[in-house]
């Protein structure tokens, strides 16, 4: 009698403080955490790619080919370069090469710096060639950080002090990093959202594209600040330290842009090549259905052009290695 009375009074106390009401949603979140961790690769194609990046780099650097090429970029690279076709064309040109393309969406030089540092150059025998693809905006510092991708798949906790103090400068940023690193729910919430809305809302894809285009325009600063390129410089310096040849590719987009003198000077100083499509070079606005990404037909042409530009560098190196 006494123990049931005391347990019912404990239960009453818990109810008064709404503890059960709070525990249920927290338990559901915990369940979601377990479920997403278990099935993370199936959350979205992007997450599957992010999880597969380390293995792709490992396979490339371990390949017995003469040249091992890692291409780093974002969705412009994903839509613009047909990896299979690129490799085929390189092989046809006489080069012996293996390659992988790393293209996490909405990433810029900041993300790529840590990606290169933590995954691409983390091997005793790193790749021979690093290709970095983006536009002037992506090569410059700043811009929004996608904590979910960055913290969970690119950066390591050892990188946090550098990122928080040198770049983010806020408690909120630090907490986002921590949450995204250790919580599969937090890191994948945007992917889950997209998946649910794509299924629940007819025509969600085009709607989201139109909204995103408006947000990009709205968030553009009226007077763009002077660009710095510390992360690009960091990548070039790291590559040079590891004796890795670098090629910068200024990707074509519908609106021509100018590759800054800073970028050219940095490339020059670090003996990096530049493949410059900033002026579009034969690609017209209709080739970019959303103003940014190449259409499949235009991507085929671009891959051919890119292979034609890249192959001689690899063939030359292949023959040098053969000697």
């Amino acid at each position: 009698m006494h123990s049931s009375t005391s347990s019912s009074s404990v239960w009453s106390l818990l109810l008064r403080w709404d503890v059960p009401t709070l525990l249920i949603p927290l338990a559901l979140l915990a369940l979601a955490e377990v479920a997403i961790r278990h099935r993370e690769a199936t959350v979205s194609q992007e997450v599957a790619h992010l999880r597969a990046m380390p293995a792709a780099v490992a396979r490339t650097v371990a390949a017995p080919t003469a040249r091992r090429v890692v291409i780093v970029g974002n969705s412009l690279t994903r839509s613009g370069i047909d990896q299979g076709m690129l490799l085929e064309r390189i092989m046809l040109s006489g080069a012996s090469a293996s390659l992988c393309v790393l293209h996490p969406s909405e990433t810029t030089a900041r993300d790529w710096y840590y990606l290169v540092k933590n995954q691409v150059l983390a091997y005793a025998k790193p790749p021979d060639t690093l290709v970095i693809c983006g536009t002037q905006r992506h090569f410059a510092d700043g811009g929004d950080l996608r904590y979910d991708i960055f913290a969970r798949f690119i950066a390591k906790p050892a990188d946090w002090p550098e990122i928080v103090f040198d770049d983010l400068g806020s408690a909120g940023g630090a907490l986002e990093l921590a949450l995204s690193t250790y919580s599969a729910v937090w890191a994948n919430r945007e992917a889950v959202q997209r998946r649910v809305l794509n299924r629940a809302i007819s025509g969600y894809g085009p709607l989201a594209q139109r909204i995103n285009a408006q947000q990009r325009t709205q968030n553009q600063p009226a007077d763009p600040p002077e660009h710095t390129h510390k992360y690009l410089e960091g990548m070039l310096a790291l590559a040079r330290e590891h004796d890795v040849a670098v090629l910068l590719v200024a990707m074509p987009v519908a609106e021509p842009y100018t590759l800054s003198d800073d970028v050219r000077q940095l490339a020059d100083a670090h003996h990096a090549g530049i493949l410059d499509y900033s002026g579009r070079r034969g690609y017209e606005p209709p080739d970019f259905p959303d103003g940014l990404h190449l259409s499949p037909a235009a991507a085929t042409r671009f891959t051919r052009d890119f292979a034609a530009a890249l192959s001689p560098l690899l063939v030359h190196a292949t023959h040098q290695t053969a000697r």
Partner: peptide
Amino acid sequence: AWPARATVYSYWLLMLVFFQPAQ
């Protein structure tokens, strides 16, 4: 009753986690 309230709180919390916009 608290189970009904817990259901609503669960909905709110899951929406807060999964459906906040990036901006």
